[in-house]
Structures are given as structure tokens and as C-alpha cells.
Design a protein around this nucleic acid. Structure first.
Lengths: 242, 242
DNA sequence: TGATGACTATAATATTTGTTATAATTCATT
DNA sequence: AATGAATTATAACAAATATTATAGTCATCA
């Protein structure tokens, strides 16, 4: 146990924490994840990992960095549909031939590997299913955010979601986390212009909701914010004590 | 065959057409659907079918009418996250305990039944998978619509989506379909106020994009609209000739 | 160390969308 | 046919967000 907690540099650490928060992983699961993580691929920041419409890739485990899933409109407008954070899965497989529904780009320097296969009924498989459910939840939250929240609410709501997810994979320190996104990217996720996002951030800082400087974001009262925004408590975490 | 095409009043007709457009259904599949459709439930317009957070219901086949999937914010703002149309499935099951992520309400007088189980590997199962993929596609389209399109684009884009889906289940006549939504509902799906939606509709009528009167919508040039909006051709339909 | 380019900040102005109010229309019911 | 409620339409005004422009900041690199 000591050896494991000392092994800060294991590439699969975030994935183990994240999936382990969803289901109680067995030694077999852990070994599978470690095996998968022994064969990694790298994508430098701003490179495209998958192009929209491309042949389906295998399900992928993101070991390090952030990935954005985006759509580009004919005139160049960009919408970031969602993010994958270190430790999370992306690129689902379906038995029918489907093409990628979005382009996937590295926002950060990214390290990934092919996700290990999960035996039906295994803990790992349960974690994968919760992961799929989480993706659906995030999409629904995103629709509500973009459709019915104003700029300040959108900013706070998305930062709350990111904080929750980063806490789940042990990538946050308290209510603070490393934010690799530029304001332009963040604006593209929130359906705002960079200028208006910046104005809104200033307002959020003044009102004491958050601080964001040199790539670190702190939410000063996540619970209060979540309440005022009507954010649902999600029940993904496993309920056993371990 | 004659008997089948004459049977306009079969309650499962839309479902058979819709699922049949996704995969070549066998006689067994057709029988299963007919069996399932022999035990129906009714919900009058404006009633709630499932409340957000409720225990998971079994996957459901919508035989008649339209269902909205919605979220309500603490101050009463409503966002319709998506629709289920006659012939389509909703209420997915996952092995882990999940609660309904949205409330589901009948927009119409609704008839539904429990979806028949699909043997793994069967055509029906393929249709279900394509159906799940379609839901994901619709959510992603919705995020892009709400995040990066203006009012006119949102109106046209959503009407195009609805037309495509209704054509798939044989519920459209050419480029015309029956629209059971009030403008208020439609506005709640598009992230607009009813007043602004109405203004936008007037503009769309004047510019010749569409007509919408007495519950019937016609898109005058769906292909041209789709091109200008950058709508993806989706590849869900089966490719065989049958 | 200074130059370069990306990112962030701010201001002035334009445009889109929301709000409130009211009238016209449609629809169901008597 | 008459009533009343819901829906649709329109206008005047307010607020939110976009656009354009410019300046400041920060990291990178020659």
C-alpha cells in the first residue's frame, strides 16, 4: 500500500483514482489499467487527436492533460461540446459503424492509452458504465447551461463541474485546480465571446465567487454556488466506505 | 404484405418504420414489437411521465405523440433538452442505479409501451444501438445550436432535425409535418423567449424559409438550409436497399 | 536583453435578445 | 353564436451580449 501511494509518477494514477471513485476496483482491474498505461501515445497541446467524421477509434483512457470535443460551423465559429480530463475515458465504441461526432483536440500536452477491456459484470465494467452515464449528464447540464443561464451562471456552473470531476480523480487541491484553458477556449465552451467572458470573470472576481490567475482557479464557496445554481448532486460515486 | 401496409391504424406503425429504417427487422422483431404494443399506457397532453430524479423506468417505446425531456432551474426557467417523437425509444437502462436525469412530459396525447427486449446481436438490438447513437448526436447538435447559433439559425436547425426524424418514421408528408408544440415550448427548447421566437418566426416566414400555421410546419428548402447551417448528414439509416 | 507573439484587460459602440404591455386570433366549451 | 382561456402577434423599451479597437501583460526565444 505504501508503495502505491508513493508512486506519484505512475502515469495511470489519475485514471485509477477516477475509476476507483466510481467502482471498487479489484487487483485484476488495477493490473489491467497499469498494463494498458504501459503503452502510451502523446499529443502536444493544440493538436488534433481525432477529426470529426473519422473512423471510430478504440475507447481511450486519458492519462494526462485535457481534451476538448468540438464542432466547427461553416463560418469558423467553434463550440466546445465537452471536455475529457485526466483519468477519464473517451471515444466510445458501438457495434455499428459510427464516425466521430466531434473533433477531439489536445488542450494540454496529452498522454493517453487504449482503455483496457472490461469483462462484462466486472467492477471495471461498472466504472465504464458510470462513466458513460456521467458523459450523458454532462451533455444535459451543458444544454441547460447554454440554453437558460446567463454569462455569470455559465461560468460558475462549468467551473463547478470541472472542480467536481477533478476532485473525483484527485487532481484538485481543496477548491483549487490547475486550469490549462485559455479564456478563448473557455468562452468557446460557454457560448460566449472572449471579451464578454473576460468581463464576466472580472465581475466574478469582484463578487468573490472565484479567483483565476496564472492558470489556477479557486472557487470560494462551491457548495453555496451549487445551491444557487440548482446543480444536481450526482450519485455516481460508489457508496461503500472503501 | 398487403395486410401490413393497409394496417394504418396499428399502434406500432411509427415504431416499426422508425426502427426498420435503422436496421432490417426480422419477422421475430416485428412480432416482438407488436406484442409489446399490445399493452399500452396513455398520458394526456401536459402530464408528467417521469419526474427528474425518479427511479429508473424500463426502456419505453413511444407509439404516438411527442415527449419533452426537460430541466427546471430553481427560479422556474425551463430548458427542454430534447424530444422523443412517435416511433422512437426513450428511458435507457443502465446496470448501475441511475435516476432520471430529466423530467419527461407529454406534449401531446401520448401512447407508449415497454420496449421489447432485444437479443444481443439481433437486428432489433442494432436498431437500439443506432437509436442511442442518434440521441447522443441530438444532444451534441443541441449544444452547438444553443452555444453558437443565433435565433434564426436555431429555429431552422431544430426544425430540420425534427423533419429528418419524422421522415424516418414516416410521420412527415414531403417537407411538411404536424407540429404539436406551442411557441412557448419551442422557445424553451431553443433557449429563447416566446416573444423573440415569435419575432424570429415572422422573419423566417418573410424570408421564405418556412411556413408554420395551424400546427403544420413546412420547410421550403431543407437541403439548402442544411447546407448553410453546416448540418451533418447522419449515417444512421441502413444502407441495404430493402 | 530585447523583440515577438499570444493572451488578458478595458473601453466605446452596435446588435441581439429579453421584458413588459397590449391587442388580435384561435380554440374549446357552453 | 357567445364566452373565456390559451395562444399568437406586435410594439416600445431595457438589458445582455457581441464587435471593434487598443493597450497592457506575460512567456518564449533569438
Amino acid at each position: 500500500m505504501l508503495s502505491r501511494s508513493y508512486a506519484i509518477s505512475q502515469p495511470e494514477q489519475a485514471a485509477v483514482r477516477h475509476l476507483g471513485a466510481l467502482a471498487r476496483l479489484t487487483e485484476t482491474d488495477l493490473r489491467k489499467i497499469a498494463d494498458a498505461a504501459s503503452e502510451t501515445r502523446y499529443f502536444p497541446a493544440r493538436t488534433e487527436i481525432v477529426r470529426e467524421g473519422a473512423e471510430p477509434a478504440k475507447p481511450t483512457l486519458l492519462l494526462r492533460g485535457w481534451v476538448a470535443h468540438q464542432r466547427i460551423l461553416p463560418d469558423g465559429r467553434r463550440q466546445i461540446v465537452g471536455f475529457t480530463l485526466a483519468g477519464e475515458l473517451f471515444g466510445r465504441s458501438l457495434s455499428c459503424q459510427d464516425r466521430a461526432l466531434t473533433s477531439q483536440v489536445a488542450l494540454d500536452n496529452v498522454v493517453l492509452c487504449t482503455a483496457p477491456e472490461a469483462e462484462p459484470g466486472s467492477s471495471l465494467s461498472l466504472a465504464y458504465e458510470k462513466e458513460r452515464l456521467a458523459h450523458r449528464l454532462q451533455l444535459i447540464d451543458n444544454v441547460t447551461r447554454l440554453g437558460r443561464m446567463d454569462a455569470r451562471e455559465r461560468v460558475c456552473d462549468l467551473l463547478l463541474e470541472l472542480l467536481e470531476r477533478l476532485q473525483r480523480s484527485g487532481e484538485a487541491e481543496g477548491n483549487t485546480f490547475a486550469m490549462p484553458l485559455t479564456q478563448e477556449c473557455f468562452a468557446d465552451a460557454l457560448g460566449l465571446t472572449p471579451v464578454h467572458l473576460n468581463r464576466t470573470l472580472q465581475a466574478c472576481r469582484k463578487s468573490g465567487d472565484l479567483s483565476w490567475r496564472s492558470g489556477r482557479v479557486t472557487l470560494h464557496d462551491p457548495a453555496g454556488l451549487a445551491r444557487s445554481l440548482g446543480r444536481r448532486r450526482n450519485r455516481l460515486q460508489r457508496e461503500d466506505g472503501g
